[in-house]
Design a protein around this nucleic acid. Structure first.
Length: 561
RNA sequence: GGCCCCGUAGCUCAGCUGGAUAGAGCGUCCCCCUCCUAAGGGGAAGGUCAGCAGUUCGAAUCUGCUCGGGGCCGCCA
């Protein structure tokens, strides 16, 4: 709807240029946007306000000329000039009827677009090291990342979901030592417990399984435990497999699946890190000092240079990060998005600087980042800090078990990632209108319920007739639903462009509210067959859009509740 | 010392990248099914958009400074 109006205004502007009302070649970045209030019509443009200066005329005079030059359209019922020089468009009932027919025609495809033109995009998210269960923060990353992927898919991108994990570094060595200590019956605080050992109860579970000779399947491999508590390497492999499997189970329960698991160890195995170092040296952005090799990241906006290779010969963490991103680029992802916790913020400049220093044609803003702020969990008005299993943090599994998958996903994705998030377990558990998830899903179930009633009452719904009678839907509640429905394609476009899945959640709440109000004020199954068909067709359109939106968030659209 | 995010109704938060009279839910108060699910709906009260200055036709939105909350800044990952 919006695009068509944009075209009409552009045509009018072109005509004014030819007439000489505005100087030839004038181009302004005017917008056509939704109005806030119905008094101002459906859409408004600020074109006249922006043209006033180049034309040397008053905004309202330009507006008059612009309106006069507007091509005729059956979709526009009325055009008004208002305020300082806004041009307000009132759409015809036929324009909305056309949109509803489009919803029925496209079904599950309605709202999707092809802006990505089937190009490759990669989203890396979660990427938790296999040293413990996933916690709430990872859950937020999983929900946001997965919804971002769904949004990009809906806008025509070919998306790969990738999970990167460190399977060889110091943290993993620490994990192995912790499990070994547990195998020996040593507990935290006791003599012999490793300095920075992992203290969670899950370490004991791993130790027990290892000693019992259990076989664990993870990442396509089987790993079996033994009684040998001296073989630290075997313990490490077993522990990583155990925790990887646990994370996979949690993610599956959360409805999140990955296409690629990328192991940090493979970067070393395939000499990717060495190659990157050599390439950086060759590009001339490095120097040696104090026995270490430095990268001049200050050439690319960092506040100080960074060490790449320590004086003891080992690499610092950011080098494999750069090498890893080189593989992303070489794998053909013209678009790469990293969804991470805000505590990783400082790596952005460095990774990008490293990639720029390679001088291999990678754009400056590549990769893109979506960072989410911290999550605090509340229960009974108090902050929850402990998980029995993991120790010092609340796990994703705890939340799924307590609040359910859909509510957990909703609450973790419904807030802007930039904002700190308070997860209220009590609210998420509530099965009432207080809980926005149920509110939205209930709207979907209500439409299904009406459709079931038709059969029970022996009433027939003639969909085609309904779609032909849509202009009979003229009460305020139906108008509100029509407007909300027609906004959906714009919503998908904006949410994807801004990488802000929370907008989908806000939208669904609004659409559900419009529907509930309508449902409450009017009956659908009435004697007037034409009006009944029209209402049932609008209800079905609402159901389709609700289902499509819920799908974008990875949530179920229940037939009944 | 440097950097990032946040500050909007009592509470939790939207506000579509600068538009017209700032929105929703919860909470408080009042009201609505003999009827497709009351897991719902209607109404009232509630605001110095943290503060100050600037940019312009126009600022919650952009810029600078100040104040508050959170996070990051290592030859740790």
């Amino acid at each position: 709807m919006k695009d068509q109006l944009q075209d009409l205004v552009q045509q009018a502007l072109t005509r004014l240029c030819l007439e000489g009302t505005v100087p030839n070649g004038t181009s302004v970045s005017f917008v056509v946007e939704r109005t806030r209030s119905r008094e101002h019509g459906d859409f408004a443009t600020n074109a006249a306000l922006l043209l006033a200066k180049p034309a040397g005329k008053k905004p309202r005079d330009v507006a008059v000329a612009l309106v006069a030059a507007l091509p005729a359209s059956a979709r526009i019922a009325k055009v008004e000039i208002a305020g300082p020089g806004f041009i307000n468009f009132f759409l015809s009932p036929e324009a909305y009827a056309e949109e509803v027919r489009s919803i029925h025609a496209h079904g599950r495809e309605y709202g999707r677009n092809q802006q990505g033109r089937d190009r490759k995009a990669q989203i890396e998210f979660v990427s938790a090291n296999p040293t413990g269960p996933l916690h709430v923060g990872h859950g937020r990353g999983a929900a946001v990342g997965d919804c971002l992927a769904r949004l990009l898919e809906a806008t025509g991108w070919r998306v790969t979901r990738e999970y990167y994990y460190n399977d060889a570094g110091a943290q993993i060595a620490n994990l192995a030592l912790s499990v070994q200590a547990r195998c020996h019956g040593i507990e935290p605080e006791q003599e012999g417990w490793p300095a920075d050992g992992y203290r969670g109860a899950y370490i004991s579970d791993v130790a027990r399984a290892y000693l019992a000779g259990e076989t664990v399947h993870a990442d396509g491999h089987d790993v079996t435990g033994t009684k040998d508590t001296d073989d630290l390497d075997a313990i490490r492999r077993f522990a990583v497999a155990c925790l990887r499997r646990e994370q996979d189970l949690d993610l599956r329960a959360f409805g999140v699946e990955f296409d690629v698991y990328y192991l940090e160890s493979s970067l070393y195995a395939e000499h990717k890190v060495d190659e990157t170092v050599q390439a950086l040296i060759a590009a001339g952005h490095t120097y040696e000092q104090d026995g270490a090799l430095w990268l001049k990241t200050t050439d690319f906006g960092d506040d100080k240079d960074r060490v790449m290779r320590k004086s003891d010969g080992a690499y610092t963490y950011f080098l494999p990060d750069v090498a890893y991103h080189v593989t992303k680029w070489k794998r053909g992802y013209g678009r790469a998005i990293n969804e991470q916790g805000a505590d990783h913020h400082s790596t952005i400049t460095r990774v990008r600087a490293g990639l720029q220093a390679l001088d291999m044609g990678i754009p400056k803003g590549w990769p893109e980042y979506v960072l989410h702020q911290m999550v605090t969990v509340m229960r009974g008005g108090e902050e929850v800090k402990l998980s029995k299993r993991a120790g010092s943090y609340v796990t994703l599994r705890d939340l799924i078990d307590e609040a359910g998958r859909d509510a957990t996903r909703w609450f973790l994705v419904a807030r802007k990632a930039d904002s700190q998030l308070t997860f209220d377990i009590d609210l998420a558990r509530t099965q009432s209108n207080d809980n926005p998830v149920y509110y939205v899903q209930y709207a979907h179930a209500r439409v299904c319920s009406v459709q079931r009633q038709l059969g029970e009452r022996g009433v027939e719904w003639n969909r085609e007739n309904g779609l032909a009678q849509l202009t009979r839907l003229d009460n305020e509640h139906e108008q509100a639903v029509l407007i909300a429905l027609s906004r959906y394609p714009e919503l998908v476009e904006i949410a994807a462009a801004n990488l802000e899945p929370h907008m989908v959640a806000s939208y669904l709440s609004e659409l559900a509210a419009a529907f509930h109000a309508w449902y409450n004020a009017h009956h659908f199954i009435i004697d007037d067959a034409d009006l009944r068909d029209a209402r049932l067709s609008l209800a079905e359109a609402t159901r389709i859009v609700l289902a499509n939106g819920l799908e974008l968030l990875g949530l179920g659209a229940p037939q009944s509740m």
